[in-house]
Amino acid sequence: MFHVIYEWWVAKENIDNFIDVWRKATNRIHNTVDGAKGSFMIRSCNDSNKVVTIAKWRSRYAWEKFWLDADPKEMRQMRKIGERVSVEVFEELGDETV
């Protein structure tokens, strides 16, 4: 598995809208893009403006192909609501979650 971690800065007054747009984008991508395994979102307990979304992909190739072929309107909307601070990619070495 392959994970992409996006760090966002989202103003407090925009968080509910950001969550809604992220949920729609995640569900659309997961349901329509080969290799997309979904995503989850967390918010910092120390800085309520800091949000992290973690997307799971079958492979780096699937993620890269997705971004070569598409720029979903929902992702553009997310970038209008919040500032994407960073993107980092990780290869999964193990998973002991249930």
Rank of each mutant, 00 (worst) to 15 (best):
I54Y: 01
I42C: 08
D20T: 13
W57C: 01
F18M: 03
K24I: 07
N31F: 00
N46H: 12
D34G: 11
R23Y: 07
W57N: 02
V33W: 05
G38H: 00
S39E: 03
R58K: 04
R43M: 01
H30I: 11
R23P: 01
K24R: 13
N17Y: 15
V51G: 02
V10A: 00
R23L: 08
I19C: 07
V21W: 02
G38V: 01
R43E: 04
W57A: 02
R28E: 05
I15A: 13
T53N: 08
S59M: 06
A11K: 14
I42Q: 08
D47C: 15
A36S: 09
T26M: 14
N31W: 06
V10H: 01
G38P: 02
R28F: 08
D34R: 03
I42A: 06
N31M: 02
R58I: 08
R23I: 10
F40K: 09
N49G: 13
A25D: 10
A11D: 13
V10P: 00
W57F: 07
V21T: 12
D16F: 09
I54W: 04
N49V: 13
A55M: 03
T53C: 08
W9L: 11
K50S: 07
D34H: 05
F18Q: 00
C45V: 14
R28S: 09
K12E: 12
N17D: 15
A25S: 15
R58Y: 03
A25R: 05
K56N: 12
T32Y: 03
N17G: 11
F18Y: 05
M41I: 07
D20C: 12
W57S: 02
N14W: 07
A55H: 00
G35L: 05
W22S: 06
V33R: 05
V21S: 03
V21E: 00
T32E: 02
R58C: 06
A36I: 10
I54H: 02
M41R: 04
I54D: 02
R28C: 09
N14Q: 14
W57E: 03
A36V: 12
V33G: 03
E13G: 12
V51Q: 01
S44G: 04
V33F: 06
S59K: 03
A55I: 06
R43K: 06
R23T: 09
A11F: 15
G35F: 06
N46E: 09
S59C: 13
S59T: 13
G35K: 01
I29S: 05
M41V: 10
R23S: 11
R60S: 10
I29D: 02
R43N: 04
K50E: 07
K12M: 10
I15P: 04
S39D: 01
G35D: 00
R60A: 14
W57P: 00
A36W: 02
T53F: 11
K12G: 10
N27Y: 15
N49W: 07
N49I: 13
K12N: 11
S39V: 01
E13R: 12
T32A: 03
R43G: 05
N49Q: 13
W22L: 04
H30W: 13
T32N: 07
D34W: 01
A36T: 09
